[in-house]
Design a protein around this nucleic acid. Sequence first.
DNA 1: CTCAGTGTTCAGTG
DNA 2: TCACTGAACACTGA
Length: 265
Amino acid sequence: MPELPEVERARGLAERSVVGKYIVKVATTGDLIVYDGVAPRRFASALRGRRIEAVRRFGKYLWMELDRRPWPTFHFGMTGSFRVYRDRRDRPRFWKVELLMDDGTRLAMPNARRLGRIRLLHDPEHEPPISNLGFDPLLNMPPVKTFAALLARRKGPIKGVLLDQSFAAGVGNWVADEVLYQARIAPRRRARDLTPEEVRRLRSCLGRIVRKAVEVDADKYRFPKTWLFGHRWGRSPDATTARGETIIHETIAGRTTAWVPQRQV
DNA sequence: CTCAGTGTTCAGTG
DNA sequence: TCACTGAACACTGA
């Protein structure tokens, strides 16, 4: 589920549901893999009684700004999300934390595969892991010149660079493939070998795709039909894009990569 | 039963 | 020291 657009959707959901309200109860689980560096009980007591002033995101990380520090920080891993409901019986399967607000609203983070993380940080934006991230394509995309300079230092395949969170925070596997498809760049091309024109295309496609996905609230049914996204799943050998181009699947930079040799050079 | 998977981290290598 | 690769992590669902 969660790359930048999905995490931004979760941020908006949380913002609409809990900002301005007080946390009256915090339910936690004893999952010491997901709770990272904080005992669930300490996490709960740091949040109880606090007012949520804002919900913020950078890359794939989310955090809540409370009226007193430290602040809760969330990463969804491969399977996390936020769910909002009012009836405790709707608490989702695989929940790791649930906040009950003073108006009865409940917000939970389910995380089936346990690759997500819940932390308690004094200043999330300015300390690791968030301070180690590169630019966020929605919040602070660098100018072309800077973008090009970043790529010029990288020897590896462009697919791997796009996935590197210290380069572009929030880009995950499907966004990377979509960007390369629309920019017409083959995923194995070495980043430093891209032409200035390709670098410009890459940057503008990255910005455009992320903005569009966020605009439609990361709802895959509202993504443009011309995108690779809706056609890449399932690995049937006869998979094609909306234009009828053949999609192939290969492992590149350690991840399954869907791409169209006919179009990406 | 087997295997892939929208992510991150860390050990090993060059 | 840096950049990169591949395995490990943990577990669901096809």
